[in-house]
């Protein structure tokens, strides 16, 4: 924690800090009863860090990941992503941020079932407004990066679980995002395939990619260089570990 910036409201994060949350809070109104899922999380993640976020269910880790992924907006505190304050942006601006800054990898892969691997990887580029030729080239390159250069025209149901997750990773990387945000990326995979996927993450991290991963499995979290644990909507522990 010695590397962290002393941040106060009104400050701007140092350029090296890619994710900064300051007293980030999220409360839900559940039929009159207010549930405080996050109660003031202050977290700083630097460029090229590999961070696992852990915690029991109900600890707020999904809420935190939705906020970091700009899928949701906080009810209190600040969130800075890549030098931009995103906690008070509107829907359309958040959509642009998701498109440019964040690469999602989901537990259930979330590929479009009727589209080919290539087309699935092209999707973020479509929303980025790229032309068809450029899109195809970049998507093909991303698929080759995850070792699926020979599976481009396959549909998800023609691919194994591990291959599907690789397509999802290619899709997450194709826009060259600031952070790769993975939500239980091995939750639907057997242990051998999980190992392969974790190797892909490790390789990406070594190439300079910032990776944030939400998981509840300790042996998956063990691959990360830093583990943040949440409990009751607050950061409980924040430890660096040997990779």
């Amino acid at each position: 924690m010695s590397l962290a910036q002393q941040f106060r409201t009104g400050d701007t994060p140092l350029p090296d800090i890619i994710i900064l949350t300051h007293k980030l809070a999220r409360a839900y109104d559940m039929g009159g009863e207010v549930v405080r899922a996050l109660r003031g999380v202050s977290l700083q993640i630097r460029r090229n860090e590999y961070v696992a976020i852990m915690g029991p269910s109900g600890s707020g880790k999904s809420t935190l990941m939705n906020l970091i992924g700009c899928l949701d907006t906080p009810t209190g505190g600040e969130y800075w992503l890549n030098g931009q304050k995103v906690s008070d942006l509107g829907d359309d601006a958040l959509a642009r941020i998701r498109n440019k800054e964040i690469g999602f990898v989901f537990q259930t892969f979330n590929l479009l079932p009727r589209a080919t691997a290539l087309h699935n990887v092209e999707l973020p580029l479509i929303y980025a407004g790229l032309g068809a030729k450029e899109r195809r080239a970049q998507a093909a390159q991303a698929l080759e990066r995850v070792g699926l250069g020979d599976r481009m025209e396959h549909r998800p149901n023609e691919l194994s679980g591990g291959q599907r997750q690789r397509v999802a990773i290619a899709r997450a990387l194709v826009n060259d995002p600031s952070i790769l945000l993975a939500d239980e990326p091995t939750g639907n995979l057997d242990s051998a395939t999980s190992g392969e996927i974790m190797e892909v993450f490790g390789a990406l991290h070594r190439q300079g990619q910032t990776v944030v991963m939400v998981t509840h499995e300790h042996d998956i979290a063990a691959h990360a260089a830093r583990v943040v644990t949440l409990r009751d909507g607050l950061v409980a522990t924040d430890q660096r570990q040997a990779a």
């Binding site: 899928l71 998701r98 999602f104 479009l112 999707l123 929303y127």
Partner: peptide, 16 residues
């Protein structure tokens, strides 16, 4: 619904 969620996560705006 899920596909819509994915598209939004990948950067689709309401208008899109």
């Amino acid at each position: 619904t899920r596909e819509i969620g994915v598209r939004k996560a990948l950067g689709a705006t309401k208008r899109e």
